[in-house]
Design a protein around this nucleic acid. Sequence first.
DNA 1: CTTAGTGCAAAACCTTTGCAACTCT
DNA 2: AGAGTTGCAAAGGTTTTGCACTAAG
Lengths: 149, 149
Amino acid sequence: MTMNMNDLRNMFRERQYKMTSQRQTILQAFIDNPAQHLSAEDIYGIVRKESSELGLATVYRTLELLSELEVLQKIDFGDGRHRYEINETSSLHHHHHLICVLCGKVKEFEDDLLETLENAVALKSNFKIIDHQLKFYGYCSECRDKVES
Amino acid sequence: MTMNMNDLRNMFRERQYKMTSQRQTILQAFIDNPAQHLSAEDIYGIVRKESSELGLATVYRTLELLSELEVLQKIDFGDGRHRYEINETSSLHHHHHLICVLCGKVKEFEDDLLETLENAVALKSNFKIIDHQLKFYGYCSECRDKVES
DNA sequence: CTTAGTGCAAAACCTTTGCAACTCT
DNA sequence: AGAGTTGCAAAGGTTTTGCACTAAG
């Protein structure tokens, strides 16, 4: 299932990375804020509000590290900054994003149906596919009401 | 089919935008370089090589404008800059991107199969979906050889 | 002639990096 | 002790903006 603090500690030990309080705090922020698509600045804000000391550069370095380790997944909604979420290793949790073009709200959508498509693409394209990302753009229910009225 | 210079002129007239030589040159650069995912800097380079005068700020402003008009589509491959391609209005030309995680090469993939999924998502989510974007990550044929050997 | 668009340089952002100080193991 | 990590400030890269000037309708 989802990464927890002990898993992280073990991953770090294996690779001789050090488990620092900053790294713990950052992972904890993701655990405390599920399904939030947090940016570096978001994390920085969350952690500082909880009165922990932390430099912004450290946030960037940690997000980079955790992405390489595939603890986090980097996503891009085109709003000029990178965003991250905990990488659900269980493929059952593969989900996609619905982005409202009016208010910018991002909703999640669970899905497995893409596996078939992925196989077809792999065959035709000669790519060995390891991951996919699917985004839908449209109007969320609230904004749709505004538009239609 | 794809946008041409006259279509653009008409769109501009309708909205009282002005058709300037810079805007023409920029659209022309997209027409001359199909399937290229050009960044602002790319366009700037292409145009200047052809000895036309043009400021980088104008490129950014024009790309923004053409995206709003849906003449261009903004895409993001996570390489730190926005990229654009001509928006194929014909849904037959809906295509997706295969991104190699090793060499960064981007290949295109044609597809219609997503319509079904889109409908399912619309129903379940209460979103009115107007567009989607699908990216596959993996190893291209060349890089796969390197990895497997 | 009027309004929109351009170019330049400066500013604004987000992200990365060099380096001395620090802290896990 | 020793290697990795942090924080700060500076640098880098992309994108945006203010303003005087220019060009399209």
